[in-house]
């Protein structure tokens, strides 16, 4: 852990923040602890956590790029999932780990089920009857709208799992609705020109009809994407498929 923060000589104010601590070796349950942080202008939550780390309070948290690009530092700040590097520090802030995932320590959660589910959903372009590309083969016939969607939406998702945490219908990995992130990724591979797999059926099996149109995923997304709109577009394709009406939702996905 390296600290980038310059020493704080003249703080504007002393802020009290509360952090939900949990150490699996000592504690049985998570507990709140309050800390005092000197606030200087433009101080973010991640800088406050690094300041506490410098003071000897070893609070476990994930951070990497500090510029809203990697999506590692998503945590619940005042009950709302947000990137810690994107949120300015306020007095009386309550910081807790993402509540959808099991906690490993302090603010670090176990998100290992997400890539496993990505693998189970086969989120890569699947094509069967296509010869391997050579030097002379023509470029892919990609629609202009697909390129636009990839540039404007799908490539901008940083996979911070804020939308999964905000979704009230996707409580855990056992809930029938997988969550907005998976739907966005399904829409991404569906628009790929090489993809031949039945993604609409996959979305139906992943419980897309459980979405309640609350748009909380769009409200919390740090990249200002709207997964809910994508979910609605996918679902409008799902409800036009008569073979998906009954009995396709609880099957093994893949």
């Amino acid at each position: 852990m390296t600290c980038y923060l310059p020493p704080i000589d003249k703080p504007d104010a002393i802020y009290n923040i509360q952090i939900l601590r949990f150490d699996p070796e000592k504690d049985r349950y998570p507990h709140w602890e309050s800390y005092q942080v000197p606030f200087v202008r433009t101080m973010t939550v991640i800088e406050a956590l690094e300041y506490l780390w410098d003071q000897g309070e070893y609070i476990a948290f994930r951070s990497n790029c500090r510029e809203f690009t990697c999506g590692s530092c998503a945590m619940e700040i005042n009950g709302k999932p947000a990137l810690a590097c994107d949120t300015l520090l306020e007095d009386g802030m309550r910081i807790e780990p993402l509540s959808r995932f099991p906690v490993i320590k302090d603010l670090v959660v176990d998100t290992s089920t997400v890539p496993e589910r990505f693998k189970a959903l086969k989120l890569w372009p699947e094509c069967k009857h296509r010869e391997p590309a050579t030097k002379d083969s023509p470029p892919l016939p990609a629609a202009k709208s697909a390129i636009e969607h990839y540039r404007e939406t799908y490539s901008r998702c940083i996979e911070c799992y804020s939308c999964l945490d905000a979704c009230p219908q996707s409580d855990s990995d056992e809930s029938p609705y997988f969550g907005p992130l998976y739907m966005l990724q399904l829409a991404r591979v569906m628009e790929h020109p090489l993809d031949e797999k039945d993604r609409v059926a996959q979305a139906a099996e992943a419980g897309i009809s459980h979405c309640i149109n609350c748009y909380e995923c769009a409200n919390v997304c740090p990249m200002n994407l709207s997964p809910a709109t994508i979910v609605n577009e996918l679902r409008s394709k799902t409800i036009r498929r008569l073979d998906l009406l009954f009995g396709r939702r609880r099957k093994e996905v893949g």
Partner: peptide, 22 residues
């Protein structure tokens, strides 16, 4: 690792907390 799970807040609880905490 990760076997100690925190019980997830129910939708209603989260809704009320967020609504009344400004």
């Amino acid at each position: 690792m990760g076997d100690v799970t925190r019980s997830r807040k129910k939708v209603t609880q989260r809704f009320l907390e967020r609504t009344f905490r400004g």
